[in-house]
Every structure is written in C-alpha cells, then in structure tokens.
Amino acid sequence: MPFHYPVAVKFSEIDHAGIVFNAHYLTWCEDAKFAYLDSVGFGPYWFAARGLVALVRHAEIDWVASLRPLEHADIRVSVDRLGTSSFTLRHEIWRAGPQPIRTATCVITYVWFDAAAGQKRPLDEGFRAALADASGPG
C-alpha cells in the first residue's frame, strides 16, 4: 500500500503550455519524500540531528496527462529499491477526484550522505528496516 501525499495545484506552477512545470513535480516529490520518511520514523529533523542528507542522485519524470490550477493531486509514494548507500522512491502523481488518473511518475534515487564527512555512507540499518517494512513483502 503506497503512502499518500495531497497536493493542490497552484496557478504559479503551470507553464506557458498549460501544464505543470517539471521543476514543480520534483518539489512536490521532495515534500512527499519527507512526509513519507517522517511517517516511518525518519523525518527531516531526524536527518538534521545526525548531519545526514538524502541527496538526489538521479531523477526521472514521465509525464502522462495535465493537471490544471485548483485541481488536487495525490502523490503515491512507494519504495522501488534499497541499495547499500542509496534508496529509490517511486512517486505516482494522480489527479484526485471521482475518476482519478495518473498524470506523471517520478522515480528518484537518493544517496545517504554524511554532511560532516562530505561523503556517502551506508544506509542506517534502522532506516533500511523501516523502508523494507513499509514496502511490504517481496
């Protein structure tokens, strides 16, 4: 079962073509990531207290359909992959309403980064377990 994060589409997030500007998808996914990680016990304050950051290593956006200002979207976050020092989240962006449709998918790989040391490091075992538990069997 994916984690759900609601978004209200703003006029300022729409480009001249009438669709959500790509950078806003990434902003929405960043907010959804923090809310998701917080829901499993590893929110932004947990990271900050330890000098850790989940840096974007790679991001892909697959656009399918438009969203308009004042519409609502539902970002469904799930774990795609757990690596040694990285993890990948899938963010499916759905138009909310009686007939929801997927409007975009963002797959983002994050690297576990120690800010004080200035380098990546292996995922915290508690973090890995929380994400594995949240992703369910398989």
Rank of each mutant, 00 (worst) to 15 (best):
M1D: 06
F3K: 08
P6C: 09
V7P: 01
A8S: 09
K10E: 13
S12H: 15
S12P: 04
E13D: 10
I14V: 10
I14H: 02
D15P: 03
H16I: 14
G18F: 01
A23F: 13
Y25P: 02
L26S: 02
W28C: 02
D31Q: 10
D31Y: 13
K33N: 10
F34Q: 14
Y36T: 07
L37K: 00
D38C: 04
S39G: 10
V40D: 11
G41V: 03
G41Q: 07
P44G: 14
W46T: 07
W46G: 02
A48T: 12
A49T: 08
A49F: 04
A49Q: 08
A49R: 11
A49C: 05
A49I: 02
R50M: 05
R50V: 09
L52C: 09
L55N: 09
L55D: 05
V56C: 00
R57Y: 13
H58N: 14
E60L: 07
W63L: 15
W63Y: 15
S66K: 13
P69V: 06
P69R: 09
L70H: 15
V77F: 00
V77H: 01
S78A: 10
S78Y: 01
S78P: 00
D80S: 14
D80E: 15
R81P: 07
G83Y: 00
G83R: 02
T88K: 06
H91L: 07
H91E: 10
E92V: 06
A96M: 10
P98I: 13
P100K: 08
T103K: 06
A104G: 06
T105Y: 02
C106H: 01
I108P: 06
T109P: 02
Y110P: 03
V111N: 01
F113R: 07
D114T: 10
A115T: 12
A116L: 12
G118I: 12
K120D: 13
L123G: 07
D124L: 09
E125D: 15
R128Q: 05
R128A: 08
A129H: 15
L131A: 07
L131I: 12
G136I: 07
G136H: 10
G138M: 04
